[in-house]
Design a protein around this nucleic acid. Sequence first.
DNA 1: TTACAAATGTGAGGGATATTCATATTCGAA
DNA 2: TTCGAATATGAATATCCCTCACATTTGTAA
Lengths: 218, 218
Amino acid sequence: MQVDSETAGKMTENTAVRRQPTQARARARVEKILTAATELIERTGSDQLRMSEIAARAGVPIGSLYQYFPDKASIVRTLAERIMLRVREGLRESLADVESVEDALGRLDNLLEGYYAMFLMEPVTRDIWSGTQSDKDIQDMDIEDSRENARIVAGALKPFVPKKEHARLDTVCFLLMQLTGAAVRLAIAVDRKEGDRLVAEYGRMLRLEYEAFLPDGI
Amino acid sequence: MQVDSETAGKMTENTAVRRQPTQARARARVEKILTAATELIERTGSDQLRMSEIAARAGVPIGSLYQYFPDKASIVRTLAERIMLRVREGLRESLADVESVEDALGRLDNLLEGYYAMFLMEPVTRDIWSGTQSDKDIQDMDIEDSRENARIVAGALKPFVPKKEHARLDTVCFLLMQLTGAAVRLAIAVDRKEGDRLVAEYGRMLRLEYEAFLPDGI
DNA sequence: TTACAAATGTGAGGGATATTCATATTCGAA
DNA sequence: TTCGAATATGAATATCCCTCACATTTGTAA
């Protein structure tokens, strides 16, 4: 008896990794592959990413790529996932031990600036992130990512928000996470000067939205 | 003498149509091709779009596709462009002859609802629009489209906004056009109930932003 | 009506890439 | 040391976009 490969192939394979590398050499290989992919994206953009070039640069045969990644998209997806995790860690750290409303809002301002700066300064990150919207699976990841991030932000604000507003706060934070992504993507797609203006305007909107949840006297 | 085809090919060819069809049969063909592409996208999504299938369904040979479209992306781009134009026309009509601030804000509310409804009801439009973010060229088109739409919206509001705020209004409208796209894309990506909530929240934000430009007493 | 150039039509085949798979090699536990 | 499991390998296969040399149709001027 044997699984119908047709069926197995069609199943939504959400794990980016085909085979879990247990041995050290295998884990090292996965890293070499990801590093090579990153470097190639840096040189030529993710559009021009070729499996053969990844293999050559990583010093592994083509077959090895498929040992750990089911397809090319999953390599990029893994890189995107790492970016998301990095951002999320930053979010967690930045919003830890918030002491007051002003404190929280100030930190959120800084986060937006940092997010924008990150994409401005890191071409690879920017490329992967923009290309991010091309892949259906990454879009789903991105939405889940926003849910996670929304939990963190909402969690940081909840102490200052009336309990009966908490559910709405969750919804709004989720929405704002996605809007933030859109705003920053727009800002990095236009020239620097206009991008700065757009981020500034967006930052203002964001602050107003958050403030709307706070009790009147702030 | 003859144009170096290499050079001609590399030039950023922004026109989606390679050869302007002047004869009636040619124009009919272009429509048949676009119709076939639309139907295929409806069936299988734009990811699975194949030039061979477009040709088969349109009842034309492969070569004919390339008679009018330089590549596959340009077919999808043409469809996306039509959607953008349709939306823009709706925007123009809806914002013509605004009579008062309340009038304008009400119409903008309706537009958001209509936009959301359009994507909910038209799977092809939704697919093309989501897939829209995959193509660099379409992303650029989308940004330009937002600039156009922003002009229309800002134009409708300017009579009620102090002149010195006009420049900022332009920036904000541009930003809001992109954010609206992001919000609606998110709303159609999640389940209907959550989507409705998200659109409602976004509509509220949007209204607040516009109101912020109006003189105090409204 | 005829003739001819321009426009349009045609589809087998070239070329570029992603992915598979049968086989070889290496690893780690007993 | 031994053997099954894990990993490595890359030639071969599969898929698909797009080209191009040649055929046919259309419009127009004589």
